[in-house]
Simulated assay, not measured.
Amino acid sequence: MNKSKKAPGWAPATLSEFDGVRFLHLDSIWVQGAMRIRKPQRLELEYVQRMMAWMLWRDSAELAQGHAIQLGLGAAAITRFCHKLLRMKTTAVEINPTVISACRAWFHLPEDDQRLSVVNADAAQWVAEAEPQQAQVLNVDLYDHEAASPVLDDEDFYAGCRALLAEGGLMTVNLFGRDASFARSAGRIARVFGSDQVWSLAPTKEGNTIVVAARGVQVPEREELERRAANIESQFKDQGLPARKWLRLVRPLPLSVIQNIEPRP
């Protein structure tokens, strides 16, 4: 099965289905997102599950409080999760209008309401103009139709992301950990956030590495992190969140990255 939605000037969002899973593409073979048709609230892709690793850094009692922002809509998996399951105020920013219409037609993305806003805009411009310190959670997954590398990946952009976060806020970023660009990208994030406020998970088998960056977060003791991980798995057992596995995969940035970080002027 293959369908497409087109808009002038944009790679059209296309759809395929296999073995009960619906995939989003942007006029290429590369997967931009996925949804299990009979379990639309489940986070199907492993790297998308790991984008939720910020949950480990938040106290269980405050887990679903505040404003969650996604830069890059994909198949709306994180947006649906934050809006419907966590019931957070949720904003998604997507530059390609065909992706938004495809998500609403094929990926169970609801219409905007009091807690949900889907914005058709360039993420860099939107971040630069956004009200500062409004988000507790920021998920960044910005790739072009070839899924080759992040389309926004400089220090000014990451500084804007940090400014968007309230104190105690957390950002997750999807990078390719097996690519030579990982050290460069991770170094830029660490230069903006501080190396003691940046961690990464081991790469998925596809090579995606999730970086977690925080604004003024104190890392809990291991026992507390284990308690939080167990609580996440119990609370969201149907959504595919192996939080105890995340905890085993989390690590500080490699020394080779940290040694090359110079203080931001």
Rank of each mutant, 00 (worst) to 15 (best):
A75Y: 02
R227N: 05
Q133K: 12
A135P: 07
Q70C: 14
A75H: 03
N2V: 09
V140W: 01
R248D: 15
F107W: 01
T90G: 04
C82L: 07
V211G: 01
A7G: 04
E262M: 15
F18P: 00
N139D: 10
A186H: 00
A75N: 03
S185D: 14
A124F: 08
T172Q: 06
A124S: 11
E17S: 12
A123V: 07
R248P: 03
P242V: 12
H108A: 14
E206D: 14
F193L: 08
A7F: 08
L15Y: 04
V93D: 02
R115A: 13
R227M: 04
A166K: 11
A92W: 04
H145V: 02
R22M: 12
A92H: 08
A124C: 08
E44A: 10
Q259K: 14
C82R: 03
V257L: 10
A68Y: 02
D154T: 09
S117F: 06
I29N: 10
L164T: 00
V93N: 02
E129D: 06
Y143E: 11
F81V: 10
H25N: 11
L86G: 00
I189P: 00
T90K: 02
W246D: 04
Q235R: 15
L152N: 04
E131R: 13
A159H: 10
E226V: 08
L85W: 09
L24Q: 01
M88N: 04
A214L: 05
Q136W: 02
V198M: 05
A121W: 06
L142W: 02
G187V: 11
L225V: 06
V118I: 15
T98M: 08
W199A: 00
Q218I: 12
N139M: 15
D19T: 10
G20L: 08
G74R: 02
Q235L: 14
Q65N: 15
N2R: 12
I261P: 05
L142C: 08
S185F: 02
D122S: 05
L24K: 01
H83W: 11
R251F: 09
V31G: 01
